[in-house]
Amino acid sequence: MAAPDIAAPAVAPPNIAAPDVAFRPPTARKTSETPQPYSRMVTESDTEGQNSRLVVSGASKSYGRPGARREALANVDFTMDRGQFVSIIGPSGCGKSTLLRLMAGLEHPDTGSVSIFGTPPAEASAVKMIGFMPQVPALLPWLTVIDNVKIPSKVNRRADARRRLQPGHLHPGEGDPVALLTELGLGDSLRALPHELSGGMQQRVAIARAFATQADVLLMDEPFSALDEFTREATQDQLLKLWEKFVTTVVFVTHSVSEAVVLSDAVVVMSPRPGHIAAVVPIDVPRPRRNGLVEAKVLHDYEDLIRSKLQLAGVNPR
């Protein structure tokens, strides 16, 4: 990892008073050396707008028997643009995982709807537009690292052809499993079995698996919560690198305020009883942000802002 560049341009102080544009358009993202091979703004389907947004509108979800129902989500509206990295933060029971499962099509809203770039989640997952990454690595213990990364391309093969015809889909090409794993520092472990790897390495294999299908949106449910602080920061950096390279859309559920700030274009603050969105905080900090490239103070200001929003929402964050 290179040391922070001293000659880097000074970072502008954060605009705490929310900027006019709630979400920066994806083109605003610039990476230092990687040229972006696909420009998403010239695609025809984008002109419709519908196909370039992930939309949850008026979604409610309750669990339990009639009479003893618990409302997990109440009338949630949520919109994000293609190419963004959005984190959802909130205490346990605020419905953030439920919201993620609705987007993944693992559950259906009682009322309201979800649209993944113009497609309902069930159809989107049928053509492999969605990549899901749970809390645990969820690797298959009997497969080697490389075979675990290849598994998404081996199931539901029919989807690959159909996906190219899907209106809301942009196909940037297949992610080469070996290249992905090498990029994640696992080039020497291609033939290893999952149990031979540390927890952090297993989670990186899971990241490679998520990126291997080049899904249009990656839904991540607290993927780093089981990692120690150092491993977690290194893994965040690697996730950001891949996200910048592959121009993916990421929805990232987390418990950690600092993690949400360093990763995201916008942080969605949720609040429980019943689960709803309490605030949306855009993080207007230039990228790349990894390895202390950004002044710590700027990030801390955002962290304080989000903590105050969480407190307003009746939550005591760490």
Binding site: L106, S125, K128, F132, M133, P134, A138, V155, N156, R209
Partner: peptide, 11 residues
């Protein structure tokens, strides 16, 4: 968790 991954892939 593994089942969720496979379900979102529509296996």
């Amino acid at each position: 968790s593994v089942l969720q991954v496979f379900t979102t892939l529509h296996a």
